[in-house]
Design a protein around this nucleic acid. Structure first.
Lengths: 242, 242
DNA sequence: AGCGCCAAAATCATATAGGAATCTGGTTAA
DNA sequence: TTAACCAGATTCCTATATGATTTTGGCGCT
């Protein structure tokens, strides 16, 4: 390894944002294989910064569940989701997102007109552009659409808890081809229309359908290894605040 | 400010864990008033370490929602929950925890015998000891009891999402006297018995009751400023995985 | 008096250095 | 052959120094 020579890099200038996006993209693209250790010094050299901001970025990525930390042994990329974890993730979505869609349809004030449509338009535009990073663009718009509904639910705690799971991010990492643009647009539109029509029942149902279908599209890729989500049992009581 | 003199502190020895617990306790005890900025250098001096581990700890505390970060302007302690946020927190709990109690009652295998009883015993013991940090002890046991149920639900994603809200921590920070030991033990026992009897309906209902009562105990302290949580509307479909 | 501007101080954010722990490989003993 | 052990090298983790940024106090101007 070549000796470290005095750097002429600027000091005290914000480097973290760039390092963060670079490392995040590296992990999502699989440049750093899932489950392998990350050499802080190597990353710092390749990005042309010192170890300090790299360590800070790794701590933030730990919050995204993209890396795991072992004291004294450094950071590794998290392994890909296995099948039970993927199922748990969709189960969580089924618990939270239909509830949020219902709440958004009830509380129309929290849902400024055009917000959802704007995200849908972004999704459609990205599909037409079909850029080099099409998949990443679509996932970003998908994420924002769902977050907009969580925001419209009026419950910041639920929204934050959902955002922190980074479900789209991990889904994308596991199987990038999940996004089937045309079908996704149609299902999103159904959710949007129900919310804007202030129809809580239909909004909740549309969201449930969307999540189930998304899971099924996934399951096909796993060739029967993934049993479909079931829906059964006695009805639950609804939870609403006055 | 006195000039910094060369320190005789050991280098390369792990200091983060101690700094983390110290700063966390400081914030919870209110030594650093909610909503005020944190001077990294001052903290480093008072704890006898350098700024680097303090920054690392602050980034971890940001994940606990105990501090917030403004780029270029450093870290501040998060302000206390206001009433809408507290309501949102309990709304989230009503969404997740009764679901988890039901799942734990269904999937008896994920709930090893004695796990819940052990946490209850710890709670009772802490009450008898009535140590100096009684409230903190009770909150810790309460947190672990609820986490045990989330763990028994068999869904690690939901468990993690719930844990990351640190609801007990923020509740405790807002109003330490919430914990009414005897009543809490009784309500916890009802939940435990329903789960161990494999009675999903009763488990879900017991948990719902416990959370509502806990919220009501809070509301009393706010002297009518906090309207009770309502429970109404059409039944929801249950979500289960096969 | 009130508002805007400028220098000085405080504070943040990163670079570099060095101590402590961990990992690697090669050797020896069972 | 396998397992244990022990340098050497690698890597982590913290300390310190310094550039960049923000905040503060004071001055002059309107």
């Amino acid at each position: 390894m070549p000796p470290r020579q005095p750097s002429d890099l600027p000091r005290g200038k914000a480097a973290v944002p760039d390092v963060y996006t670079a490392m995040r993209a590296s992990i999502l693209d699989g440049e750093i294989a899932p489950g392998t250790r990350i050499n802080i010094d190597a990353v710092a050299r390749s990005l042309g910064v010192s170890q300090t901001p790299v360590r800070e970025v790794l701590q933030r990525l730990e919050g995204d569940n993209l890396v795991v930390y072992n004291p004294g042994r450094g950071y590794s990329t998290t392994p890909l989701l296995d099948l039970p974890e993927l199922r748990s993730l969709f189960e969580f979505r089924l618990l939270v997102e239909p509830w949020a869609a219902r709440a958004a349809a009830v509380d129309r004030l929290a849902n400024p007109a055009g917000t959802l449509e704007k995200e849908l338009a972004g999704f459609r535009d990205a599909m037409k552009r079909s850029s080099k990073d099409l998949r990443q663009d679509l996932v970003a718009h998908d994420t924002r659409f769902h977050d907009a509904i969580l925001a419209a639910s009026g419950n910041p705690v639920v929204r934050h808890a959902f955002a922190q799971t980074h479900c789209h991010l991990h889904t994308f990492r596991l199987y990038p081809a999940d996004v089937d643009g045309a079908i996704t647009v149609a299902e999103h539109t159904a959710v949007r229309e129900a919310i804007e029509a202030c129809d809580p029942e239909r909004a909740e149902a549309a969201m449930t359908t969307h999540i189930r279908n998304s899971f099924d599209r996934f399951a096909k890729a796993f060739d029967g290894e993934l049993a479909p989500l079931e829906d059964s049992g006695p009805p639950r009581r609804r939870i609403v605040t006055g």
